[in-house]
């Protein structure tokens, strides 16, 4: 008899193996995320039927296809407004948005900006693999300056976006940066993020050996993994200023923001009760 995986009950097992390339970091992201969800469900803090995954388009966004929950695989960049539409109608839902750096920070930039400003009650998991994986290695807003991409073949001249700084500035309740090189830490971040009201924004550094790695000379998944591992440091309580990164300087992992301001659903419910209280 085939021995199952402990996470099988949460997976559409008939869709495994995933579409991801061998050695891709995305499996680690999905695994840690589902483990965190599992812990919250077993502790009675989440109801399984109230958990939903929403992804836009990209390798990362396809993470929404595998969990055995309500899920949506929508248009490129548009997972956040879709998820917020669900959340407003059914505030009991725990909406988990999964997206790549292109999906969330480039084409979905306007939506993430306003979701952060609203402190919208969503868990947004943005995987920063520093590239457009699905479409074959074009520039992402997160691509470190100087690196090769197929659309900046002479080296990216632009400054990389730091979504941690943006999320912190606009008022998300929880902002963290994890990495697939540190799965226990990542799972702990997800676990914590799942209990937050308001916006929880988790940036996850991940390896794309097939495209990003190949283009910068680390085609072997283990080599890219070790290279990334060399460039990250974990800090207990990093300041937002420390979150700026470059390929040379490296990346600081940790929880940058952890606060408990009213979330969008709180302020919106208060608005609704004012409408109803005023007798219309």
């Amino acid at each position: 008899m085939a021995v199952g995986h402990p996470l099988d009950p949460y997976l559409r097992v008939d869709r495994i193996p995933t579409m991801w390339c061998p050695g891709c970091g995305l499996g680690v992201v999905l695994g840690t995320l589902l483990r965190a969800v599992d812990r919250r469900i077993r502790e009675g803090q989440l109801k399984r039927e109230n958990v939903a995954f929403v992804g836009g388009i990209g390798c990362t966004a396809r993470m929404s296809l595998y969990p055995l929950f309500d899920s949506a695989h929508v248009a490129h960049g548009r997972a956040i407004p879709f998820a917020l539409g669900v959340k407003i109608v059914k505030p009991e839902m725990k909406m988990i948005v999964v997206g790549g750096d292109g999906d969330i920070a480039a084409i979905g930039g306007n939506h993430v900006l306003h979701a952060l400003r609203r402190n919208a009650d969503l868990l947004v998991v943005m995987v920063n693999n520093m590239v457009y994986g699905m479409t074959g290695g074009q520039l992402a807003p997160t691509t470190p300056r100087g690196l090769y991409t197929t659309t900046t073949p002479y080296g990216n001249p632009e400054k990389e976006i730091n979504m941690v700084r943006l999320a912190a500035a606009l008022g998300a309740n929880y902002v963290a940066r994890g990495s697939t090189t540190h799965p226990q830490l990542l799972e702990q971040m997800f676990y914590k993020a799942l209990a937050k009201r308001g916006m929880a924004f988790v940036e996850v550094l991940s390896t794309c050996p097939e495209i990003f790695g190949r283009h910068i000379g680390f085609r072997n998944p283990a080599d890219l993994y070790l290279e990334l591992r060399k460039r990250v440091v974990v800090k207990a309580r990093p300041s937002v200023e420390e979150s700026d990164y470059s390929w040379e300087k490296g990346f600081v992992l940790g929880e940058y923001v952890d606060r408990d301001e009213p979330g969008y659903i709180d302020v919106y419910s208060e608005y609704l009760s004012r409408v109803l209280g005023s007798g219309g």
Partner: peptide
């Protein structure tokens, strides 16, 4: 809102229609 519905202004028309699609999948 007086009749139990929701009305929200979004950041653009793209967000608006996506939120409406999401809401429809939440039975509204």
């Amino acid at each position: 809102p007086k009749r139990g519905g929701h009305v929200v202004q979004f950041e653009d028309e793209i967000a608006s229609i996506n939120a409406a699609v999401g809401a429809s999948w939440a039975c509204a």
